[in-house]
């Protein structure tokens, strides 16, 4: 049976502000979905809600992974069940080496029943695997000794997220603007890396403004989000259209959602904006 992640009628609020207003989406493992939409439409909120960020409250709807209710799971349980998000803004953990962080993370994700304090993957075995993955992704091995995202450039952070994706081998991955803040060469490298990791093994939900990532990771489906709803779903041609001509047609076709979106975009100045 193919692994399936289903989102039904998802409503999410941040504080008292509703952001998502009924999102429906189904991903099968091996598929690539593009999630596009203007700023403030709720794309990142969907990622945060999928991973269970405490500030993103699900007020209605459901998220189901292979028949299991994801909403009842803690964030770490979701990770162990095979969900992954590459953060738009990865968080620094000073004093913790990326290699140590990843060794612990990889152990927990691969052995979902591991109890706290039980052994981690043997150091030597882990190092070998990490080294080969880093080679594959053309990442300097020295990187593993640096503290997690601490003093990383924007590009380094995104590369570290891709490395984590490669090590954790999730069933489903949300890539939240993994190409933003990168120069053309870095975008190309990131796109190729994701394509290599993702090919047929991961259900990808790619949040992006650009087309480069989608050139290398050709979406089977393109979803357009506006005002906290998915208003249109199509194939790659939809992504191409939006990239070439922007969101004017979408706004005109869905005036109510467009009005919602402008209201939400204004609210984005808040620290917890969508």
């Amino acid at each position: 049976m193919t692994d399936t992640l289903t989102i039904r009628n998802l409503h999410v609020s941040v504080g008292d502000t509703p952001i998502l207003k009924g999102v429906d989406l189904e991903l099968k493992r091996g598929e690539t979905h593009a999630l596009m939409g203007p700023n403030g439409c709720g794309k990142s909120t969907l990622g945060m809600a999928l991973m269970g960020h405490p500030n993103y409250e699900v007020t209605a709807g459901e998220i189901v992974l292979n028949g299991t209710n994801v909403l009842e799971m803690r964030p770490d349980e979701r990770a162990r069940a095979g969900l992954f998000m590459a953060f738009q803004r990865p968080v620094a953990i000073p004093g913790v080496k990326l290699a140590d962080f990843l060794r612990h993370a990889t152990t927990n994700v691969r052995r979902p029943d591991r109890k706290e304090g039980e052994d981690l993957i043997p150091m030597r075995e882990f190092r070998q695997e990490l080294k080969s993955k880093m080679q594959q992704l053309k990442i300097d091995p020295e990187f593993a000794r640096r503290y997690v995202n601490d003093g990383f450039s924007g590009g380094e952070m995104k590369r570290a997220e891709i490395l984590q994706l490669a090590m954790l081998e999730p069933k489903f991955a949300i890539l939240d603007e993994t190409d933003s803040g990168l120069d053309a060469d870095a975008v190309l490298l990131a796109s190729q890396s994701i394509a290599e990791i993702g090919r047929k093994q991961i259900g990808l939900l790619i949040i992006t403004h650009h087309d480069k990532l989608l050139e290398h990771n050709r979406p089977d489906y393109t979803h357009v989000m506006l005002g906290g709803r998915i208003v249109e779903t199509g194939g790659i041609e939809l992504a191409q259209e939006l990239h070439a001509r922007g969101y004017d047609r979408i706004r005109q076709t869905y005036p109510e959602a467009a009005a919602d979106n402008s209201a939400m975009a204004k609210g984005e100045a808040l620290p917890l904006g969508a």
Binding site: M51, R74, D76, A79, R80, F84, F87, V91, N108, Q164
Partner: peptide
């Protein structure tokens, strides 16, 4: 809370 959430998204329990 942000680094805690980040680590939890990578499979760490809150305590870990």
């Amino acid at each position: 809370e942000e680094p805690i959430f980040y680590a939890c998204c990578r499979g760490f329990t809150r305590k870990e």
